[in-house]
C-alpha cells in the first residue's frame, strides 16, 4: 500500500466519521439534559436541504451553514415545545420529527433536485496540504475541525463548567435541580437547540461536502447510527469521538475490502459489520454494570414540576 493510498483511505474514514460525530455530539448534550430526541435524522435532512438551497441560491457556503443550523434548530424547537412545555411522549414525538423532516426536506428540495454546487472545500490554503501527510492535517473542510473542537468543548463543558454541572443535574434529577432553583425547562430547551444545530451541520456535511447535491432522503439513515453512537459511547464525548471514527473505519474498510477483492468473508458479512460492531460493544458495555448505568437518570421522562 502506498502512502498516497493510505492517506486517501484515512481521508475517507474521516469523511464517514465527521457527520456522525457532529450529530451524535448534539444528541449527547440533549440526552445529558434528560431529553431523548429520536428526530436526529429529520433535523439532519432539514439542515441538509436548507444548507444546499441557500448555498445554491446565494453562492455563499458560510450562509448555507448558518441557515442550515437555524433551520434545524427551528425543527428541534417544534420538538422542544411538544416534549418540554407540553410534556408529550419523547419517543413518539421524536419519531414524528423524523417523519416530518423527511417530508419537509423533500418539499423544500423539490426545485433543487438535479442542481449541484461547488463543494465546501478545505479551509486551509491548498499549498499547505500538498504533501500527503500534511493533507491529513490541513486538507479538510471546516466541518471536520468544528467536529473535533466541539468534542473538546462538550467534554470540557460537561465536566469542568458550572453550566455543564447544572445541565447534568437537570438530566440526573430534574426535581432536585428544580427545587434548588434551576429552570429545568430553559436548560432542556437550550440542550435540544444545541442538538438541532449540530444535526443541521451534520446534514450539511452530506449535501455540501461529500455529495454536493440534494436528493430525497440524502442522509439515508445516518441519524440512527448517530443515535446508537451516543449509547455506544456511554454518554462520554471522547469515547464518542473514538466510536465515530471506529464506525467510519469499519464502513470504509468494508468498501475497500470489496474493491480489493478480499473474498475471505462474504460481502453480506462485511455489510453487516458496522451493525455487528454496535451490538458487540453494546453487549460489552451493558455487561459491565458500572458503565451500563451511565444513562442520565431522567432520560426520556417528561418533567412536571410538583410545586
Amino acid at each position: 500500500m502506498t502512502e498516497a493510498m493510505a492517506v486517501s483511505i484515512l481521508m475517507t474514514v474521516i469523511g464517514a466519521a465527521t457527520p456522525l460525530l457532529l450529530a451524535a455530539l448534539g444528541e449527547l448534550v440533549a440526552e445529558k439534559s434528560g431529553v431523548l430526541n429520536l428526530g436526529i435524522e429529520g433535523m439532519m435532512l432539514v439542515g441538509a436541504v436548507t444548507g444546499f438551497a441557500v448555498t445554491s441560491s446565494t453562492g455563499m457556503h458560510l450562509l448555507g451553514l448558518l441557515a442550515a443550523m437555524a433551520a434545524a434548530v427551528g425543527a428541534s424547537m417544534i420538538f422542544g415545545v411538544l416534549t418540554i412545555s407540553l410534556a408529550s411522549n419523547q419517543v413518539a414525538t421524536g419519531l414524528a420529527l423524523t417523519i416530518f423532516g423527511i417530508g419537509l426536506s423533500s418539499m423544500i428540495g423539490e426545485s433543487f433536485v438535479g442542481l449541484t454546487i461547488a463543494p465546501l472545500g478545505p479551509v486551509f490554503p491548498a499549498a499547505l496540504a500538498e504533501d500527503p501527510l500534511l493533507r491529513l492535517v490541513f486538507g479538510h473542510s471546516i466541518l471536520v475541525y468544528v467536529s473535533l473542537v466541539m468534542t473538546a468543548a462538550v467534554a470540557w463543558f460537561l465536566t469542568r463548567s458550572r453550566g455543564g454541572l447544572i445541565l447534568r443535574a437537570v438530566g440526573e434529577n430534574d426535581h432536585s435541580a428544580h427545587s434548588i432553583g434551576y429552570s429545568v425547562t430553559t436548560v432542556r430547551y437550550a440542550a435540544v437547540a444545541f442538538g438541532g444545530a449540530m444535526a443541521g451541520l451534520a446534514g450539511c456535511y452530506y449535501s455540501m461536502v461529500q455529495t454536493p447535491m440534494w436528493a430525497d432522503e440524502l442522509t439515508a439513515g445516518r441519524g440512527w447510527i448517530a443515535l446508537a453512537l451516543v449509547v455506544f459511547s456511554a454518554w462520554r464525548p471522547w469515547r464518542l469521538l473514538a466510536g465515530a471514527y471506529l464506525f467510519g473505519a469499519v464502513m470504509t474498510f468494508e468498501l475497500h475490502a470489496k474493491a480489493a477483492g478480499l473474498n475471505i468473508v462474504p460481502p453480506e458479512f462485511l455489510a453487516a459489520l458496522p451493525y455487528l460492531a454496535t451490538i458487540l460493544v453494546l453487549a460489552l458495555i451493558s455487561s459491565r454494570r458500572s458503565v451500563g448505568s451511565a444513562a442520565p437518570a431522567c432520560l426520556g421522562q417528561p418533567f412536571r414540576p410538583s410545586t
Binding site: 483511505i9 475517507t12 457527520p19 455529495t211 440524502l218 439515508a220 474493491a259
Partner: peptide, 17 residues
Amino acid sequence: WYDPAKEADAAKALFDQ
C-alpha cells in the same frame, strides 16, 4: 439502490484500488 454517501465512498474506494 440509493445511499448517496455510501455510493460516493464506494467510488473513492474503487479509485484508490
